[in-house]
């Protein structure tokens, strides 16, 4: 690692990120006003329901938004370099080398027609054209061993369908770590796996990440994973950040009713129940004029400001940032109970 990078200089700095979809004359805003920093070596967690914009945010960082979407504004600095508008060739040299990514569904993330080995060693060779096949292979075998794949020499000759989901996700982790990236992005890395395998794969991920001192953005809707792995947490709702703070603070003193509801469902709902927040998130096409969460909010209580004025993300006394007009009421309730 480069010693001249001080811990207070962010590795990744996202400012006012806006992701839009142009469909006909109408512009749909899918992600709006998202700002955060990731510091070297830390783990930042992003939680939120599906459709909240968390995956789009990290895909934008990779420069891999689907063709129908585009970045409508803002800035993404990685190691001080602006990623938005960077030529494809330079983006390519960052993907897989500066930033590695693990995707949600290991069953579909590998090319079914190619052997696993070549798909993994390719990650090394793309960024080290002079590395021999043998060196690249040795590097991958080593990584596979680190993430808990036994007998990697033999098994990498297999095709993806011959591996279990857990094994494939380990392979994906090895691929993402192939070039010792400074930043690892894991987009719901265990969601598609059996519950029994989830913990093992998460441990492998945490172990290999720590060993290589990479920072990580962990996207999940499992708050338990957030507590175990992250130092800071972002809660997203309907394309915006609604709460942002240290994990411990956010869990003890949530400053947004959505976060509070998520936590409540975690405690009372147990493992089998889906978070019981009444209603559904608004469609990005017709978000309420005021707070996007207002229609589902218990704190709202018919107050006009919630339906008329969109709350900005602001500091609260707990130390977290909150996008709720009445964050302080939550804190009072929190201390009273």
């Amino acid at each position: 690692m480069n010693d001249s990078i001080r811990a207070d200089v962010p590795l990744l700095s996202v400012r006012d990120l806006r992701i839009v979809s142009d469909s006909g004359d109408e512009q749909i805003v899918l992600v709006d006003g998202v700002s955060f920093d990731v510091f070297p070596g830390e783990t930042l967690c992003i939680v939120g329901e599906s459709g909240s914009g968390k995956s789009l945010t990290v895909l934008a960082v990779m420069g891999l938004l689907p063709p129908a979407l585009r970045i409508g504004g803002g800035s993404i600095l990685f190691q001080g370099r602006e990623m938005i508008g960077l030529p494809e060739r330079e983006l390519r040299s960052i993907r897989g080398r500066g930033i590695g990514m693990v995707f949600q569904d290991p069953m579909t993330s590998l090319n079914p027609l190619r052997r696993i080995g070549p798909q993994l060693t390719e990650a090394v060779r793309l960024h080290n054209p002079r590395a021999s096949r043998k060196d690249a292979s040795a590097r991958i075998q080593d990584l596979l061993q680190q993430v808990g794949v036994t007998q990697p020499e033999r098994s990498t000759r297999a095709y993806p369908h011959e591996w279990s989901g857990g094994m494939r996700q380990r392979a994906m982790i090895a691929m993402a770590m192939a070039n010792d990236p400074d930043l690892l992005i894991a987009d719901e890395p265990t969601t598609a796996l059996d519950v029994t395998i989830q913990a093992q794969v998460m441990q492998s991920l945490a172990r290999v990440r720590a060993a290589h001192d990479s920072a990580m953005i962990l996207i999940t809707h499992n708050l338990g994973l957030a507590v175990e792995n992250a130092s800071r947490i972002i809660v997203m709702y309907s394309g915006r950040i609604v709460e942002f703070g240290d994990v411990a603070t956010v869990f003890e003193q949530p400053t947004h009713p959505y976060t509070r509801a998520l936590l409540a469902s975690l405690v009372t709902g147990g493992r089998e129940r889906i978070p019981a927040i009444p209603g559904n998130p608004p469609s990005p096409r017709n978000r309420p004029q005021g707070c996007a969460f207002a229609p589902r909010c218990a704190l709202h209580a018919g107050r006009d400001v919630c339906t008329q004025k969109r709350p900005e993300l602001r500091p609260t006394v707990s130390g977290s940032l909150s996008a709720c007009h009445f964050a302080e009421e939550l804190l009072m309730v929190g201390t009273a109970s």
Partner: peptide
């Protein structure tokens, strides 16, 4: 997904 993965490892 495998196409996105391929781009994510830096493939042209």
């Amino acid at each position: 997904d495998y196409v996105v993965t391929a781009y994510a490892r830096g493939k042209s």
